[in-house]
């Protein structure tokens, strides 16, 4: 189709706009509501104020919950990375026949309702110091988000011929560590990163697991947010905006870092030493 007719173009535009509208409307509305003075008698807010944000920042739990959520999300990312990447790699290289089993296992966290997962953790791990600890929560969030990490990593593992690259590395004298860090990981980097982003965002926004597992022992940001919805809608909206902006910002920083890392690696002439002579 060299010259698309007007009809389909318009239709495509409409579909895309509807989708964007559908996705953006709640976000825009939340942003506006967090800034609104009063918004129940008119289409647009009657006035704008920073008051909700001031209240939010001054909440006694604001800093501590934010910190807890960040710790939880980052720890989940790291644990997930440490568990999933070697597992996927070794399954692909040495235990191919277990791959279908692993694929199946990774559906379970989706199939089990979050509440059930949380309550089972609470019931099973009743002993100190694990019970209701942030550590237990991290384990739960890692399991809960494992499919994201697993899918992203295994997709990028499938996209590269991992076993041939491994053998090439081995034949050149590379041991497991060097093969993993210098050959395999750089080639499945995008998958690892997108998996970590999904894990981060999901854990950062999780309410159920934290509420049921640690509860007040380890209060997370979404718990504060839910609390505020019952007190002041504008403050809750402000907290949502902060949460959303933070998650988005951190994603951007991660993406920027990764693109910078890969760029600098390509720009750096590795035969500097030779040219210098």
């Amino acid at each position: 189709m060299k010259t698309p007719t007007k009809g389909p173009v318009f239709l495509r535009f409409l579909i895309v706009s509807l989708f964007v509208f559908y996705m953006l409307l709640p976000i825009v509305a939340t942003y506006l509501f967090s800034l609104a003075t009063r918004w129940d008698r008119s289409i647009m807010p009657e006035g704008y104020t920073w008051e909700a944000y001031q209240t939010a920042f001054n909440l006694s739990y604001f800093r501590i919950t934010l910190k807890n959520s960040l710790i939880l999300s980052i720890a989940s990312c790291l644990v997930s990375f440490i568990i999933i990447v070697p597992t996927v790699y070794l399954t692909q290289i040495n235990f191919r026949k277990f791959r279908p089993l692993l694929d199946l296992l990774m559906i379970i966290p989706f199939a089990i309702p979050t509440v059930v997962l949380a309550l089972s953790y609470v019931r099973v791990y009743t002993f100190q110091p694990i019970t209701r600890s942030p550590f237990l929560l991290i384990m739960a969030t890692v399991v809960y988000t494992m499919p994201f990490m697993y899918r992203s990593v295994s997709n990028s593992v499938d996209a590269v011929d991992i076993s041939v690259l491994t053998e090439a590395s081995q034949s050149l004298g590379g041991d497991l560590w060097n093969t993993l860090t210098k050959v395999i990981m750089p080639n499945i980097y995008p998958g690892i990163l997108s998996g970590m982003l999904l894990v981060f965002a999901t854990v950062f926004a999780d309410f159920t697991l934290a509420k049921l597992i640690t509860g007040a022992h380890f209060k997370t940001f979404p718990m504060l947010l839910v609390e505020q919805t019952q007190i002041d809608g504008n403050v809750a909206a402000a907290l949502s905006v902060i949460s959303f902006t933070l998650a988005w910002g951190i994603s951007m920083v991660l993406l920027w870092f990764s693109s910078k890392a890969s760029k600098s690696k390509k720009a750096q002439p590795s035969d500097k030493a030779y040219i210098g002579k």
């Binding site: 011929d161 053998e167 081995q170 034949s171």
Partner: peptide, 16 residues
């Protein structure tokens, strides 16, 4: 294999 010092060239090149 990584201790044998045996070089290998693959059908699919297998460059990194």
């Amino acid at each position: 294999p990584n201790k044998r010092n045996i070089g290998m060239v693959f059908q699919s090149y297998a460059l990194f």
